[in-house]
C-alpha cells in the first residue's frame, strides 16, 4: 500500500494535497486502467501470450517500435541542429521558427494526419516529386516515420534549449585557449554536457510516438503485417468484438510505455543528482 514517509518539512498541506492527488489520479487514471487489466486477465496465462505474440501483433510491435525509434533518431539529430541554431545564431525569422516548433503539441493529431497525407500522397506537394523517384511515402512505413517525426519534434528541441543556453562560454574559450580545435571542444566539452538532456528528449519523443494514433492512421495504409501499427490493431480487434484481445494488446503497450517513462524519470533523477553534485 501507499507508504507515506514524509520528511521534516514544516510546510502544511501535505496530507491534503497528496491525498487529493492520489484520489484524483486513482479515479481518472488508475481505475480505468484497472478495468483494462481486469479485461486482459480474462484470458488465461497461455491465452494471453498466444494473443500477445501472434505474428500479426508482433509485426505491429516491430513496425511501431521501429518507426517510433527512427522518428526519435531523426528528431535527435535534427532537433539537436535546430536547438543549436535557434540558441546560438541570430538570423531573420529565428523567433518565428522558434515559436512554431511547438506546433505538433498544439495541433490536433487527426488534422496533422490529414495534412501530412495530403502533402505526401502521390498527388501532394512533396509526394509528386518523390513518387517518380521510386520513393512512395504515403501508405508505407516511411510515411508512418514521417508522422511520428512530426509529433515528436518539439521534445528534443525543447529539452535541449535550456542547457544549451546555460553552457558557459568560458568553458569553450578555456578549451580553445588550451589548443583544442572546435571539433575537439564540441566532442569533449559540449557533447558530454548535452548528452543527458538529448537522451531525455529522445526518450520522450520515442514514448510519445509509441502511442500515437490520430496522425498515423491517415498516412499509414493500414495493411496487416506491413503498415499496421499497434494502436490500429487494437481498433481492429475491437471491431471484431474481441474485447479480450484488444485489452491484451493494450496491456502490452501500456507496459512498454510505463517502462520507458520510468526509465526517463530515472534518467532525469540521475542527471539531477550528478548535476547537483557537480554544481
Amino acid at each position: 500500500m501507499w507508504h507515506i514517509g514524509r520528511t521534516n518539512s514544516p510546510l502544511p498541506g501535505f496530507r491534503l494535497t497528496l491525498g487529493y492527488s492520489v484520489l484524483y489520479l486513482s479515479l481518472i487514471v488508475l481505475l480505468p486502467l484497472a478495468a483494462l487489466l481486469a479485461k486482459a486477465s480474462a484470458a488465461s496465462w497461455s491465452e494471453f501470450w498466444r494473443i500477445a505474440l501472434d505474428p500479426r501483433a508482433v509485426a505491429s510491435y516491430r513496425l511501431t517500435l521501429g518507426a517510433a525509434l527512427a522518428g526519435a533518431l531523426i528528431n535527435a539529430v535534427f532537433g539537436f541542429v535546430v536547438a543549436w541554431t535557434l540558441v546560438r545564431y541570430s538570423f531573420p525569422g529565428r523567433r518565428l521558427l522558434d515559436a512554431i516548433v511547438d506546433l505538433p503539441f498544439a495541433m490536433p493529431t487527426a488534422i496533422s494526419g490529414i495534412a501530412l497525407t495530403a502533402i505526401y500522397a502521390r498527388t501532394g506537394w512533396i509526394g509528386q516529386w518523390l513518387e517518380p523517384l521510386g520513393i512512395p511515402v504515403a501508405f508505407t512505413p516511411l510515411g508512418i516515420t514521417i508522422a511520428l517525426t512530426f509529433i515528436g519534434l518539439p521534445f528534443v528541441v525543447r529539452t535541449l534549449q535550456p542547457p544549451l543556453q546555460e553552457l558557459e562560454v568560458e568553458l569553450e574559450q578555456a578549451a580553445a585557449s588550451l589548443g583544442a580545435s572546435r571539433w575537439q571542444t564540441f566532442c569533449r566539452v559540449l557533447l558530454p554536457t548535452l548528452l543527458p538532456p538529448l537522451l531525455t528528449g529522445f526518450a520522450l519523443a520515442f514514448a510519445r510516438a509509441l502511442g500515437e494514433y490520430g496522425s498515423v492512421v491517415f498516412i499509414s495504409g493500414n495493411m496487416p503485417m506491413k503498415t499496421e501499427i499497434t494502436s490500429l490493431l487494437i481498433i481492429v480487434k475491437l471491431e471484431q468484438y474481441d474485447y479480450t484481445g484488444a485489452a491484451v494488446i493494450a496491456t502490452v503497450m501500456l507496459g512498454a510505455s510505463f517502462a520507458i517513462l520510468l526509465g526517463i524519470n530515472g534518467l532525469q533523477w540521475w542527471f539531477n543528482q550528478r548535476h547537483r553534485a557537480g554544481a
Binding site: T123, G124, F139, I235
Partner: peptide, 21 residues
C-alpha cells in the same frame, strides 16, 4: 494487388479519388 487497406469504405474512396492511388 491491394496496396492499401483503409478501415472504411469512405477512406478507400478518398484514397482512390484524392490520393490518386
Amino acid at each position: 494487388n491491394v496496396p492499401v487497406l483503409d478501415s472504411g469504405a469512405r477512406g478507400s474512396t478518398t484514397t482512390f479519388v484524392q490520393r490518386g492511388l
